[in-house]
């Protein structure tokens, strides 16, 4: 599992430019599914037909591939880049950040104009230094519209904890890849590795309309409340998978939530309930598709969500796969 997550966090996946992640996932899931295709938004669909034949009901499983990024909007005469955020990044936290451009692999450092207080920094004060000596030199490596993500990679802390800048949500992608491998379900599984979640679940919205499933489930990470003076949340790291009850986009109907809880109990997987009012997910967009889709979610608890160093517990990830597989296995 650790190796799979590492493999998935290597490629850069800015919102709207997820192709490098998509390619890796495509190769990984190909042997286990009946059909793979993509769409205009950048979603990757992997469909595994249900055991009960063409009449099988369909469940859509969504894990977003993208991560917040910086989009180049201008290059100055000395070759410094001006950038704007794709997704929820705060300018005040970015000074000195190391970034990598998805298209060319060029690396850069985020700098800030002098004389602006840290708390007052906005994106118009930031620039990216890619070591260029002129406008022409910079253009060799970066174009307007290119996007950069953090370049911190993957680390281990202690025995069971892993850290990375894109664990949100390559961990969810890893869970979904692994579940496709292991699962046998009566339902047809439409796995959607979704694009553009960080900018408002645009990929998921289109995927829900296209697939028109009978039910949907998102796989994502969610912040914990177990660090000093943390937000008042109930999830803990290592406490087992979180079953979604509420996030910023969604209230999960109790009957949908209870089906997942029952699966956890039957499979003897420890679980927690996620109530996370400031966390966005693809669930809300999927729920609103067409006539409305009963939607739930399973999340991996994570520390430091929204920073370049998200931390998860490997046992939580393993148990999330077990829970998801058990849940899918019982669908008839």
């Amino acid at each position: 599992m650790k190796e799979l997550i590492r493999q998935l966090t290597i490629p850069s996946g800015p919102s709207g430019y997820e192709a490098p992640v998509k390619e890796v996932i495509h190769t990984l899931v190909q042997p286990y599914v009946d059909e793979v295709y993509d769409d205009a938004l950048g979603n990757l669909y992997a469909v595994k037909r249900g055991a009960s034949g063409p009449a099988a009901k369909t469940i859509l499983l969504a894990a977003h591939m993208d991560e917040p990024a910086l989009s180049v909007i201008d290059i100055d005469d000395q070759g410094f880049l001006r950038v704007a955020p794709l997704g929820p990044l705060r300018a005040s936290t970015l000074g000195g950040a190391r970034v990598i451009f998805a298209r060319t692999g060029r690396r850069g450092i985020v700098g800030a104009e002098h004389g602006v207080a840290q708390k007052d920094l906005d994106f118009s004060h930031l620039f990216v230094d890619i070591g260029a000596i002129s406008l022409d030199d910079a253009r060799e490596h970066v174009r307007i519209g290119d996007a950069a993500t953090f370049a911190y990679g993957f680390d281990e802390v202690g025995a069971d904890l892993i850290v990375g800048h894109a664990l949100d949500n390559r961990v969810g992608c890893a869970v979904l890849v692994e579940a496709l491998k292991r699962t046998h379900s009566g339902y047809t599984i439409a796995a959607v590795f979704s694009a553009q979640q960080e900018v408002g679940s645009r990929g998921a919205r289109v995927a829900g309309q296209r697939i028109h499933p009978d039910a949907a489930l998102v796989l994502d990470v969610s912040p914990v409340g177990d660090t000093p003076k943390s937000e008042r949340l109930a999830l803990t790291l290592g406490g087992g998978p979180g079953i979604k009850a509420l996030d910023a986009t969604m209230v999960v109907a109790p009957k949908v939530r209870d089906m997942i809880v029952d699966a956890a109990r039957l499979a003897d997987v420890p679980y927690q309930i996620e109530v996370s009012p400031r966390t966005a997910s693809d669930a809300g967009a999927l729920f609103l598709s067409r006539e409305g889709i009963p939607t739930g979610g399973i999340v991996v608890p994570a520390r430091y969500v929204g920073t370049p160093s998200q931390m998860v517990h490997l046992r939580d990830v393993e148990q999330t796969v077990t829970l998801l597989t058990a849940y899918l296995g019982q669908l008839q």
Partner: peptide, 17 residues
């Protein structure tokens, strides 16, 4: 409202719906 957390002493913290 929704129960978001059970704090020490059994007091409930809430999220709004």
């Amino acid at each position: 409202l929704m129960v978001a957390r059970i704090d020490k002493g059994g007091f409930l913290r809430v999220a709004e719906v």
